[in-house]
Nucleic acid binder design. Sequence first.
RNA 1: GGCGGGGUAGCUCAGAUGGUUAGAGCGUUGGAUUCAUAACCCAAAGGUCGGCAGUUCGAUUCUGCUCCCCGCUACCA
Length: 676
Amino acid sequence: MSDFSRTTVTAALIYANGPIHIGHLAGCYLPADIYVRYLRLQKKDVIFVSGTDEHGVPITIKAAKEGKTPQQVVDYYYKEIKDSFEKFGISFDIYGRTSDPVHHQVSQEFFLKLYNEGKFIEEVTEQFYDEEAKQFLADRYITGDCPSCKQPGAYGDQCEKCGTTLSPTELLNPKSALSGSKPVLKPTKNWFLPLDQWQPELEKYINSHPEWKSNVTGQVKSWLQEGLKPRAMTRDLNWGVPIPLPDTEGKVLYVWFDAPIGYVSMTKQLTPEWETYWKAKDSRIVHFIGKDNIVFHCLIFPAMCMAHGGYQLADQVPANEFMNLEGDKISTSRNWAVWLHEYLVDFPGKQDVLRYALTASSPETKDADFTWADFQTKNNSELVAILGNFVNRAFVLIDKNFGSVVPPKGEGTGLEVDLMAAVSDIPAKLAVALENYKFRDALVLAMEIARLGNKYLAEAEPWKIMKEDSAKAGTVLNYAVQLVAQASIALEPFIPFSAQKLRSALGMASFEWSSLGDFELISAGTVLQNPGLLFEKIEDEEVQKQVDKLTQTKTQMELATKAVPALKETIAFDDFAKMDIRIGEIVAAEKMEKSKKLLKLQVNDGFVTRTILSGIAEHFAPEDLVGKQVTFLANLAPRKMMGIESEGMILMAEDSDGSLALVQPNKQIWNGGTVN
RNA sequence: GGCGGGGUAGCUCAGAUGGUUAGAGCGUUGGAUUCAUAACCCAAAGGUCGGCAGUUCGAUUCUGCUCCCCGCUACCA
């Protein structure tokens, strides 16, 4: 760390199509903020850059749904997101956005340089095109019937009903989401970055950072092992950064091409020395991200930088895992989340409590779980009982016994020597933890100051010695005040609002890291302004309300998903008559090798035993199926799966919870019996 | 199935390039105390470090196999 003259800290660009929740905060913004605040305390040269990512297909879809323009959508969320971050004290030096003209210009220049130097491969591929809307359709813009579950409304990249991953050409009856017309395949040119060519250099880069977290290198190495492939850096879309080349109307840069450049373009808006922060050899770049962004920050962006030349590569990418909520994955679409803007309403002025609780169980090495019970405990047993209580004791004792004036320090005893020795260990340990991105550990260390304070007061008992030796009691309280002052510095990165309150109560004008361990911070005679209670107990009812709120949304969502699916279009009798549905007996069943979902069934259809593959391995044990009669579609065109031909389809009834049941005749039927 | 991450005290999580009594916070129990938001302070209990084998003088830490959870990925006609 000492080899670098300045640090450029980025936090992931968040996608501007919704509000933010605790998962975002815990994932990267809070750790990044703690890190940056620490560096500022150290008087280091550091900038903290982030913003919203405002391009890409989901935003255009959201806009279309709400009858707004994409710009209106991102304007709204940019403001809301920026506001939430500000209120939680995430201290960005600049919070930018990728729809900014400066961003467009910087990313276009970046693209052009690669283009002019022949770093791209031009390739023409066939994509769906909407002739009515006169534009190419991104995967999400094509809907149709899912080839897997047959339900309508599947998207070109996946069916949300059954979760199957799709490619647009697989959809049955594809339709354009724009005009409803049937799209046609049409050739289009795109520019690919040949990641495969950069693989050796990327490997060298990754291998030069053995200190990276195992979850980061693990995922990166898994990609490298499979071999990188050229990746399109442009898309056929109207919303985004236009490609700065002639005859490219309707084409924009791929969001993951322009988004990381956003860090750079935002820096450019922050300072005229922006290039120094990104290109100088003594600039250290740190990307804070969530685990879903690892590949883009550790492989694709570095490859872009290598192709461009001149840019420094990230020195650290401390990616966090995910924060779960009450045992379940946080999900925007299921509304399973604690939204920051709602928290601010329910717990006004308690930003530090959430910051503390999230940091204390931060998903640094594995997915973590946020529970309201834990939130309450962290507040009541740690913030209130340890820190708040210590601070309150110090202030109240001085108010009562010395009229709120800090008493002078007399000769110390063994207690003071022990105290100073114990405190003197903390700054170095704390610095090591913070510099190694161990924020959970760091928080415990910072709180140690308050713990030592409580212990010191309990042992020194100033309220007792006050009667016989008020000077000695004054000494004790002076030491206590110095501890409060130090706590305000050590805790500043974690709970900045409370730290600030303490500093103004103590009349501290300036504060810096080097003051930790200094017991002369507050001079005798200083008049204290008792800040009142720093933290309040959170009662059971308050957290219960939050839990209820969550359970309520959960049952609502369950009800919603339990809705009986809509009826399909009416069909003619002839359409039905085409289907040859029959009864057969499963005579053998086994699990398909190498498949999680497929069972290989041998079905006696009255003539022969035919092989039918069925994706029900997660619902039925093979041995339970043998001997059972089932209904199956006999004249479905055979289809090869995992090397084996499937001759038909077993009919299944699906229950509201997603479980499956065989469709069986209510008495034994001869094999081959028809169903009409 | 493949790849990656993880399975350590009641809970949330650390840690060990293999070596004497495996740690923290919270929770629990007991004690002390009253300056303090029934808070603080002291102490104790609590773990065959997912399972089985192997390497080793010695493994919870290394290797192999196996079970379970999470993520990505192929398969659901």
